[in-house]
Nucleic acid binder design. Structure first.
Lengths: 329, 329
DNA sequence: CTGAAAGCGCTTACAG
DNA sequence: CTGAAAGCGCTTACAG
């Protein structure tokens, strides 16, 4: 069942069917249009997007590459991308790399062969210069979320401002011994958060203390173990570079009988699902992830036709105060 | 840059290029093959899947429709589908319906126009007979996850056995007043869980007590409010039809100073991310969601060519005992 | 082993 | 306002 069948059924040429189905401003006599629409309905005709894409050189499809959709950080981003895409009549193909180079390359190949109109790459940790070059050759734009890469478009929050804000919040409550559990220091976003933490300390007239900084790996367990060591140096507040580690910090404190926030305050980062759980109720930094996904998709579509200089869009972080922060004793 | 360019570069016909690129067992002289592969590399040629799909009548793409990827139940399913798909060189287009009929229809249209080879629909609550018929017309299979629908392929856990097992676990610990917070009773999976709960009570020689059963909506809040009422009837254990409500139950008990599991035990359902959090550490029923996604994709691919009777695949639930269950006082 | 040619299902100048 | 025809980039009988 194709356009030829519809044309025969309606007694017109396939050109006319095409014009009616595409519903552009091309002039078609009202009666003819009706006849075609009737045939379309009777036959349940749906134009083949493959044929269309072949001709028009665009597929109304974009790729979304994430490290791992099962990580609670990514689903909101995916939703944002997908929401915006479907509003623009685009479809989204998604891919999980598990941060493995071989998988990334496999997906880049797949997406390229499918001639997606562009791709969005969320999350850091893997090298995507390969992808950027390959897509550039095809004239398809690439937008990164949560990382900035020289020469690429990107959407991310202002990590420096966010971490500065979290630190300032704690300082304003009266804390002077503020510890920080970082994420993997190879990530630019983590480096930025560390810089923001440092800036926050300075702004509050507090000194930097190496012993109060521990590198984590974004896993709950690493927040737990980092806290074990940090407790030796008696911080009154612990800032974790993501919520999951924040939950680990909370765990360790409760296991030790340290009350939160009376004895020690905690601030997380991301405002994922888990921070909002009544049981954890973690004060945290909100990253508008759905918004970021949406922005990335829009940025992508704007770049579809036209080589433009790299655009870097910063979104606004905001502090969400819940039950894990209060003044020190 | 297309197959013609490669053919010119290698000094052969496009037919030969096609044969080499597709690397099937069609005989090509080794030197010729080399010459073509060189040209492919030099030019960075990637065959256009649109043209291929148009000819071969298959796109190596499947659709995945979920209510809401941001709901922690779905990402694992999505990963399972995607993992299996990429292993089979398939791509996955994903769609969120928010359980809205208009969105569902929009996606069904989109996927049909893209000529996906089949679709997987996860989650209940919306009517998809429309989709089933439309896809049937195109000869594309549909597989449901987590719901059984007369006439469709499906993958789900044995909800009856799962709920029976949870109830048996509590009864074995010595509980005799076991309450149940259901999900929306319109869902067949919830009806099955209720049946399993009833069967579990009977098997343990316990009677049914209407006052110990409350309908929830799968939200954390509804677990909280249901518990408020249930407490009047002094249950020693509360079984919730999903983890999120289980967390709500836990909340309410803690707010009332009821100790878990010393005073009241709790069992959740799904074994989502949140049940594993150290803080919640909820005894729950594991649904092998990633496995279910994988199974669904495989079931789909097996049905690609060939109308077969509906296949219903049941996966094995398992009890994950954590810290919210123990003997009654 | 290799190539010329038809054709997948559309869109879009071009002609009328 | 309508249609005939070319062409998007491939695969695949068919012929040699």
């Amino acid at each position: 069942m194709n356009i030829t069948d519809v044309a025969r059924e309606a007694g017109v040429s396939i050109a006319t069917v095409s014009r009616v189905v595409n519903n552009n401003d091309y002039p078609v006599r009202p009666e003819t249009r009706e006849r075609v629409l009737d045939a379309v309905r009777r036959l349940g005709f749906r134009p083949n997007d493959l044929a269309r894409g072949l001709l028009q050189k665009r597929t109304r499809t974009v790729g979304l590459i994430v490290p791992d959709l099962a990580n609670p950080y990514y689903p909101e981003i995916a939703r944002g991308v997908e929401d915006a895409a479907s509003a623009e009549l685009y479809a989204v193909v998604f891919c999980n790399t598990d941060r493995r180079a071989d998988k990334s390359e496999h997906y880049v190949d797949t997406l390229l062969q499918k001639r997606v109109d562009g791709i969005i790459i969320a999350g850091g940790g893997t090298d995507f210069t390969h992808a950027s070059t390959a897509f550039a050759e095809f004239g398809a734009p690439v937008v990164f979320i949560g990382r900035h890469r020289a020469g690429g478009h990107s959407v991310q929050i202002d990590n420096v401002a966010a971490a500065r804000g979290a630190t300032a919040h704690l300082a304003a409550l009266g804390h002077r011994e503020i510890a920080f559990v970082t994420g993997p220091l190879t990530l630019t976003s983590v480096q930025d958060r560390l810089a923001g933490y440092r800036a926050g300390l300075e702004a509050a007239g507090l000194g930097w203390d190496d012993r109060l900084v521990r590198e984590g790996d974004f896993g709950e367990r690493s927040g737990y173990t980092a806290t074990q060591e940090l407790l030796k140096h008696k911080p009154t507040a612990i800032f974790a570079a993501n919520d999951l580690m924040g939950a680990g910090v909370l765990d360790r404190l409760e296991d030790d009988g340290v009350r939160v926030p009376q004895d020690v305050s905690i601030v997380g980062f991301d405002n994922t699902f888990l921070a909002a759980l009544h049981h954890i109720s973690l004060t945290t930094i909100n990253q508008p992830r759905r918004e970021m996904g949406r922005l990335a998709l829009e940025l992508l579509l704007e770049r579809l036709d036209g080589r433009t200089a790299p655009v870097r869009r910063l979104t606004e972080p905001s502090l969400v105060v819940r039950d894990t922060t209060g003044p020190p004793r």
